[in-house]
Amino acid sequence: MWKSFHQFASPPHFYRLAGYLIPWFGVAALILILVGTYGGLVLAPADYQQGDGFRIIYVHVPSATMSLAAYTLMATAAGIGLIWRIKLAHAVAAAAAPIGASFTFLALATGSLWGKPMWGTWWAWDARLTSELILLFLFLGYMSLRAANDDTGKADRASGLLAVVGVVNVPIIHYSVEWWNSLHQGATIIKLGEPAITGDMLWPLLTMMVGFGCYFATVLMIRARSQVLQRERNSRWLKDL
């Protein structure tokens, strides 16, 4: 078990395995996202309260979910890298950050586009939007700290430490924002929540979420392979490519 773990964590092995997996995940992502989009835009009935406007959840909720998943994965990988000194784990963490930041940006932008017709304003201090905004800053902080360190090894450990502290903090931030929001909400706005959802509304959403997950895995592996190439640029095994 331990041996196979280390074998998996060896850069050449990962590089080849990821190269083999990328097309599969890519095709799965494409099919699932297309089916989910069709289901969400065409097959799902309009919401009785929000009309066709609710269809934005089919991109908003998967983006929000994946942004949090990306942060968790980034911090987990960084933690593994810090504890067992596995460079590949740091490469995966570094690869996850820009994708996670994109998902966070998408969750904010689509939430804003959803909020405009629902609330009459582009931005409301909704709990999820506020949490996403803080999450965006967490991602940006991680990436800026990486960029500020010239030495890759130092960047790995400094940013990894920040990610681990951040992931302990994320539930506290989430809880405090929810609490803050519930106190100040008053009667002014409808919560940006899932409408009373029925089965024919739900399956496209789940399909989209799995599709976004496969997309994330695809781009993550491409970026992690780039990281490996950069980090291993002096290694012999690259000759066999």
Binding site: T37, G51, R55, A109, L113, K116
Partner: peptide
Amino acid sequence: MGGYAGYVWGSFGLTAAV
């Protein structure tokens, strides 16, 4: 899109682009 065209297509378009 029941009057929500700009918002719905905007969201999907932006997501696809990103």
